[in-house]
Design a protein around this nucleic acid. Structure first.
Lengths: 254, 254
DNA sequence: TCAAAAGTGTTCTACGTACACCCATGG
DNA sequence: CCATGGGTGTACGTAGAACACTTTTGA
């Protein structure tokens, strides 16, 4: 295929790109930037510095054009791997952005956005990747395109899902204590919940089950370890929630 | 731009299409088909018969390629208008389908699916549109591509949203009684709820407010009329839910 | 022996359900 | 006057919030 001239580019059919918002609890041993509000209670994400117009030099979400032989999710997975060297613990389609003017060039791009959670429990050393830096979501630099909107939407979605599903565990390793899980949960939701009630809710939900192990990590009683237990209905294709499951199930009035 | 040959088509960048699942309470005065389970408690949607390969003659969701000068939502709106002659009371992006083999041709298509609710309260006469027919969602014919999956996902999403938001009212006109609303709600969710409790829940939710009017339509006490009241936070861009609003708001423990 | 987090028990409230009962109307 | 759906009142059960209290550790 030959290159297109200016007016052809403007009226050419839109191209498809995939971008991914990758959340983690801490930045790995790469090079973080931006003043980090190091209360410990922030999320982090990797950004890629653009080397081409438009927005040369600006930071952007990891992503790229959709190749002809790659599925959308594969594309999200591979850019995630390129940017972090890791595989996601959770990956879900977020939204598709297709405004006419969002690419700020003649060539129109429709972007399918994904969001992902990764666990850094393994203390991944992470040889630093070229042009990638980690930022706290609370101190992001100016982003290219409408990527700030995408991040904002991803945060909303993460918060929403954290309130009625167990996604938060995906930030943690195989084994975790309920204290750890609660702190993650609170960081994501920006609240502080009662340890006793949180414990009961989690155990009652059945999404978590005890391994035999205990963990001792301070001047206090050791904590029992738990593992995540897969949700009963594995809905692979569900950007939409399925809330109020229990309520829905028992009903069937009069 | 010149036409592409076969191997070029296969490795060409994916094209973007938009398809819309349009739900209504009853089919308009067009030509419905398929054995309709006329319990009155089904939803209906318009389908378009394909006139070109692949899947020639099969029924498919209204949609088409994304034009260079049209936004995704505009595209969904316009195909909706073409198929039904109406404007949606509700329109939301559903999901983007981009599997490699879903188009069953060499040319790969990424489809951004939308779902919509329309009200037929105005007793729209609907001059029958060429190649469009309405089907009950419970008796759909075989569909082209992966459109059956899309419809299934849309139904799940509609049900989910109906449980924790007021979307169901969008099936009705400006004014409605709580009995009407309850029947719609029940039809969508496939349950039967207690009129007294439903009434209380709706009024308590604040999503509904009385107009002065009453409606008399049978051998029983006339019903007060209500109108829908816009949700407080108009989140234009929110495929994700925002459930447990009340619970979330008051919190902020210890 | 003290602080600090793990873990248990108990009360209180909000919300939804079930269900009994009155109201207004057309036939 | 009766069947039908609109509309009110009320008792019950459950889930979460608040909070008092015990347990086990390191320093």
């Amino acid at each position: 295929m030959r290159a297109l001239n200016v007016s052809e580019r403007r009226t050419a059919p839109p191209r498809v790109g995939v971008s991914t918002v990758i959340f983690a609890l801490q930045p790995p041993a790469g090079q973080p930037v931006g003043d980090a509000p190091h209360d410990g209670a922030t999320l982090w994400l990797p950004l890629v510095r653009r080397t081409r117009a438009p927005f040369t030099g600006r930071w952007a979400l990891p992503g790229g054009p959709l190749a002809w032989d790659t599925s959308l999710e594969e594309s999200a997975r591979s850019t995630l791997h390129e940017a972090t060297g890791l595989s996601p613990r959770y990956l879900e389609q977020l939204y598709t952005f297709g405004g006419r003017d969002r690419s700020a060039t003649d060539l129109r791009v429709v972007t399918v956005a994904y969001w992902a959670l990764i666990a850094l429990a393994d203390r991944t050393p992470m040889e630093s990747v070229e042009n990638v830096a980690w930022y706290s979501v609370d101190a992001l630099p100016p982003l290219a395109f409408d990527h700030a909107d995408i991040v904002a939407l991803a945060r909303r979605r993460l918060r929403a899902k954290a309130t009625y599903t167990g996604v938060a565990v995906r930030f943690l390793g195989e084994e975790f204590t309920l204290g750890e899980l609660r702190r993650v949960h609170d960081a994501v939701l920006g609240r502080t919940s009662d340890p006793a009630n949180f414990r009961r809710r989690m155990l009652a939900s059945g999404r978590v089950e005890p391994t035999g192990a205990v963990r001792r990590d301070g001047a206090h009683r050791p904590a029992r370890c738990y593992r995540f237990v897969a949700e009963p209905d594995a809905e692979l294709l569900t950007p939409a929630p399925t809330p109020a499951e229990t309520t829905e199930r028992k009903r069937r009035t009069s």
